[in-house]
Design a protein around this nucleic acid. Sequence first.
DNA 1: CATGAATGAGCCTTCATTCAT
DNA 2: AATGAATGAAGGCTCATTCAT
Lengths: 203, 203, 203, 203
Amino acid sequence: MNGYERRKQKKMDQIYSASLSLFLKHGFQKVSVQEIAKKAKVCPATIYNYFGTKEKLYADMLIDWMDKRLELCEQILASEIAFQEKTKRIMLLEAKSVNVLFNDAAVMPLGAEMDEWGNQLQQYSEEKVIPFYMRFIALGKKEGFIKQDISEETSMFYFNMYKNVLERYVNAASTQDHIEENIDQLINLFFFGLVGRSEPMKE
Amino acid sequence: MNGYERRKQKKMDQIYSASLSLFLKHGFQKVSVQEIAKKAKVCPATIYNYFGTKEKLYADMLIDWMDKRLELCEQILASEIAFQEKTKRIMLLEAKSVNVLFNDAAVMPLGAEMDEWGNQLQQYSEEKVIPFYMRFIALGKKEGFIKQDISEETSMFYFNMYKNVLERYVNAASTQDHIEENIDQLINLFFFGLVGRSEPMKE
Amino acid sequence: MNGYERRKQKKMDQIYSASLSLFLKHGFQKVSVQEIAKKAKVCPATIYNYFGTKEKLYADMLIDWMDKRLELCEQILASEIAFQEKTKRIMLLEAKSVNVLFNDAAVMPLGAEMDEWGNQLQQYSEEKVIPFYMRFIALGKKEGFIKQDISEETSMFYFNMYKNVLERYVNAASTQDHIEENIDQLINLFFFGLVGRSEPMKE
Amino acid sequence: MNGYERRKQKKMDQIYSASLSLFLKHGFQKVSVQEIAKKAKVCPATIYNYFGTKEKLYADMLIDWMDKRLELCEQILASEIAFQEKTKRIMLLEAKSVNVLFNDAAVMPLGAEMDEWGNQLQQYSEEKVIPFYMRFIALGKKEGFIKQDISEETSMFYFNMYKNVLERYVNAASTQDHIEENIDQLINLFFFGLVGRSEPMKE
DNA sequence: CATGAATGAGCCTTCATTCAT
DNA sequence: AATGAATGAAGGCTCATTCAT
């Protein structure tokens, strides 16, 4: 990587960082390219030279960010702690902000325009995210924490559900106080449901 | 109700209906007041005469819509079917679209502006929605489907989680096929968790 | 005047009063007919039934107001006090607000549109206001306070100048403190100029 | 000054010129930014890139314009002609249009909004305009045309009064004919008042 | 006649995007 | 390759004015 490319990479990182923080705070639509350019100390035209579109910038930034996340998740999965603890940590890690980024209805028009970059994300998801969860769930089944007869699809969905919703819980200021205890309760619900045992089984 | 009010009410209903469908399809930010006006066959200024702000229109429409929903939920809760079936129906009913309406990050600036109408929603939630869920959960506990030692707060959160996320599942076109069977699986997970029995208990 | 006309007159007075106070406070352009209607507790359409145009309302209200003013000025002119004191009182009376009403550049486009109602004011001025000042100046000349060789036109202009500008002085909050003494100085300047005697002549 | 700045300066001058003439003719409120843009052969957005607000454009344009005026006034003050002639020239020069620009009630909301740019003008006045008049008056006193016992504040006010009102006189089409002679009369009144000598003193 | 409701035109402003340098 | 400047299209909102009742 020569000096040229190094400078370019640095600028792209600035843009990624600036746009991430702005999108997280205000949502896709409420952030203007000029704001991002200003915060990244770059000229707007530069952003267009790199990404071509605001939407494309969003997609690229998101993938860059997901790569980093996935890396951390892999570390957790590979670590020596108990499966339940892994579950909790991965959930909390991902919960931090993924929801805002994906739920922004304004970005995903669910209609005609999503073709181009929506596919890009779809592809990323299929190639990297889903395989990770597959391994996660397989581990859970192998260690006896997930029933054998639950389909992988359902498990994944169930897991995602928790992950996504935890985020709102974590971010909700009003309940900030007793988050910790409630999160444990929720993890417990995750494994045993409303009817089940109240403590994780010990063998 | 005289002719004036009748006409006004009719126009408001047109506006509610048009804005609901548009907001659901494209999100708050991507829908212009002029689009709504056009679809409702009304002049944009009329909308401002009624609601004053695009945001206020959103809030008012939402409350109008929630009122109708809540009415249906009450009927389900009061009906003679089994608690599990009630749960499922309420979830599916509410799941239809509530998530999109509430999650639109663009509408909830999370900052200064949300004061005025955010409070309105907050109040509505506290006065009508939460009480309903309280009764729902109390019934579940009484009938033995919810453990006594789970706090109402947690139960409500857990229930909401399902409800919200089911929506995405229901709306996701790719999995449209085997929704029904998977939803049953999910309702089962809801009561018994990943580890628990695979069939609802029989009495 | 039957009950019908009495009610109409009362409503017109409400409209005059409301519009006067609003125009004085915010200027012609920044006041909407709906605001006036609201403050006058009348429906906007009523204003249009009476006056036809916002501009026409302004003109009519202004003339109504000037009539009342002129009445007071006549009383001062006919009273037994010294000419200088009359001058001062008339100036201060008129100074109160006439300037704002006439100077509002937005109302007097100085172009094509002023034809209709500008003429109305012009006519009023020629028929009532100017004759009054003529008499005022004639009295001043007769009593020796105005040089004989100054044309009536110039005198009137000179007098108007003072009157108009005093208003700004009176309204300027920053100099509120020593208004009284300065106004006396200014009245003195009015009669004797920058070079002249500093005290009014006594004979 | 490189090519960028040169172009920008040129466009700004176009905007200044266009907006000045339009504001003078129709007043602040009746002129739309689009009109200005059209007349200046610029896109409306460009105006907002430069000035941010219509109000700010007004303020900036005004200051630019005042700077040029003040420059001319300084030249007159420094010239070798008689004080009375200086007075007359400065009055006439300033009279041309300053009044319209400052009196536009719509621009000075007298309320909350004027803070930002109102202060800007205030500051300009205090830093540049007032000092100029101070020197002007000091010269008048030194040369015996202004009585020593008249406060500077009053002198300035008196002078401003003339200046402002002359404008209306100059612009009033109806009296266009005998302006010249009347202006001399007015200047005479300025120095000697209604009672005083009819000819300037000779030494 | 007076009113509640409705409207169309227009305004200020923003912003994704492109040009000329 | 990177930037400063410029833009066209669109959006939210206001308001003088007019219908239908």
